[in-house]
Design a protein around this nucleic acid. Structure first.
Lengths: 206, 206
DNA sequence: GTAATAAACGGAGGCGCCTCCGTTTTAGTG
DNA sequence: CACTAAAACGGAGGCGCCTCCGTTTATTAC
């Protein structure tokens, strides 16, 4: 246990129930996910898998060995993004006053949803087919939000008569709103408006 | 009304808002739909469009001209089947006592749903994307059922304290039940059970 | 180091999707 | 009929999907 090489620390989230990959396999797999993130971002969820393999510098066979179906790959990419979004909550909380952290996180939430619009149809299929994925996501996002809301309530920067689910409910409108050109601006304004409401209550109480 | 060639009677439902097709075009289109019914039945909703064109004896280009996307073709086939299902209600009502007609129609409904199982995922996409299709279908099926139920209630072969939506609700379980091997038998028994319940009430009242 | 073996690689090949456009057929018109 | 314009046809071609299997590479044992 003494002199373990530091690489070990990096991947532990995935270490569940899977035997360790050979070095080249792990490298390629990571590479593929990395590239898939960009390709899906650029071309949408229907982006070509062959392009992903090409850009990652591996054969198409390798891609398919790691991710037997498109959905597998999509799921991994998706989970990764949700992960990043949730991890951002902790970091924002450290660097900013709690109300600002909440606001910035919600703005980031908007950005995140933005990348998902348009893909909605295909993504919905994946989410309906794989309901574990859906509930996992929902749970993680809720938890990140709860953390921020509770901190802000605790130190009085936002009003105390709301909880995380109220805020999540309010954000629901962002997700379900139609996909117009103004969507993004409208959503950013909605977040500000929501924050004003949350802060107002706090000011009043003080 | 006198000496019309009988072919005329067949296609009128589609005559809305579309200019008449050239003879060859109409022939090919009909052919394609015909073949698509079998191919979708045999291979599922993901059956090859090229096979459909091939079997219909037309080029793939012709198929795409008539049905720009797979969904278009699926929709036409689907509507046609719903149509047939609903039309069966009238015919059964003429040939059988009203309670028997109802029962037989419900069994046919089971058969119909059976062909849709497994395709569920792809079909659900089409139905979600095209909500008009969904509500049209729902409306037509409900109406067919209502016709049968009301007739049976009217002549006392089933109890009078239920209406079509109660029965439809009961049939809902058939649609949403998981896709096990026993599904079909279970569903047929469910229909019988339901009919017993409906008849029992009538007997009691008499 | 070398050998052996299991793991991983990668791309050819077969199939389906869909578009594009040169060729054929139909429906009018004189 | 003959002619013409519009409509319809059809399939080649380019691309993506996915599988299969001969080749390469990492790891383990000596």
């Amino acid at each position: 246990m003494a002199s373990e090489p530091s690489a070990i620390a990096e991947q532990k989230a995935e270490a569940v129930d899977a035997k360790p990959l050979r070095a080249d396999a792990r490298r390629n797999r990571d590479r593929l996910v990395e590239v898939a993130v960009s390709v899906f971002a650029e071309r949408g969820i229907d982006g070509s898998l062959e392009e992903i393999a090409r850009r990652a510098g591996v054969g198409i066979g390798t891609l398919y060995r790691h991710f037997p179906t498109r959905e597998h790959l999509v799921e991994v990419v998706y989970r990764r993004e949700v992960e990043a979004l949730c991890a951002a909550a902790g970091k924002l909380a450290q660097k900013h006053p709690s109300d600002v952290a909440l606001e910035q996180w919600m703005q980031r939430f908007v950005d995140y949803i933005a990348t998902k619009r348009g893909l909605a149809t295909s993504l919905r299929i994946v989410l309906t087919t794989n309901s574990t994925l859906f509930s996992d996501t929902f749970g993680r996002v809720s938890q990140a939000l709860r953390q921020l809301v509770e901190a802000a309530v605790a130190d009085g920067t936002i009003r105390g008569d709301v909880d995380a689910s109220d805020v999540l409910h309010a954000l629901g409108g962002i997700y379900s709103a139609p996909d117009t050109p103004e969507w993004r601006d409208r959503s950013r304004r909605l977040v500000k408006l929501l924050m004003d409401g949350l802060r107002f209550g706090a000011a009043k109480a003080q």
